[in-house]
């Protein structure tokens, strides 16, 4: 699996702050999570097939992410009610943010919007406790990138090793 040419914000950049709906009546700001690493997982759409579904996999891996001190946040251009139905159906234990209005604005700021489809790329960002991107990865849109890259990046953060140089180019 190799990343292709991408405009995604690279490691070393400050992660753009944002505030988006996490539920029909709750907002979540990236800055609310400052102080702990954050995994920002952009994905194209809710309701992809069950067993290969990226969010279902991350839901399963959530205890490992938490063990490494990290918050996980999913983000797509679906609306809050779609997210609510999807999260309920799959029993997800982490927030899904609605990058819905203006559509894909946050995906654009992270360099991972797909204007033709109106969705984001399948893109991962690991952001450190100070709000700096320490690892980013864009997967081919049809391919679930798994969790190994995230785990490696979080472990590097925990070991205070500089991963900036190891980021995907």
């Amino acid at each position: 699996m190799s990343a292709f040419q991408t405009t995604a914000l690279p490691a070393g950049e400050v992660a753009p702050d944002f505030t988006l709906p996490a539920t029909p009546d709750q907002m979540l700001a990236l800055s609310d999570l400052r102080g702990q690493p954050v995994i920002l997982a952009f994905y194209p759409a809710d309701w992809s097939p069950v067993c290969g579904d990226q969010m279902v996999l991350y839901n399963q891996v959530l205890p490992e992410f938490r063990h490494l001190g990290a918050h996980l946040v999913g983000i797509s251009t679906d609306g809050v009610w779609c997210h609510a139905a999807f999260a309920h159906d799959r029993g997800l234990h982490f927030p899904l943010l609605a990058d819905f209005e203006p559509k894909g604005e946050i995906a654009r700021r992270y360099g991972v919007y797909r204007p033709h489809e109106g969705t984001s790329e399948r893109a991962l960002f690991v952001i450190d406790a100070e709000g700096v991107i320490r690892w980013s990865y864009v997967s081919p849109v049809g391919l679930n990138p798994g969790a190994d890259g995230i785990l490696d990046a979080l472990e590097s953060l925990a070991g205070k090793r500089d991963v900036t140089k190891e980021a995907v180019s």
Partner: peptide
């Protein structure tokens, strides 16, 4: 087994 799968890049079954 599950962790070895994650490390090996398993993304689904």
């Amino acid at each position: 087994d599950f962790m070895s799968g994650l490390r090996s890049g398993v993304n689904g079954t």
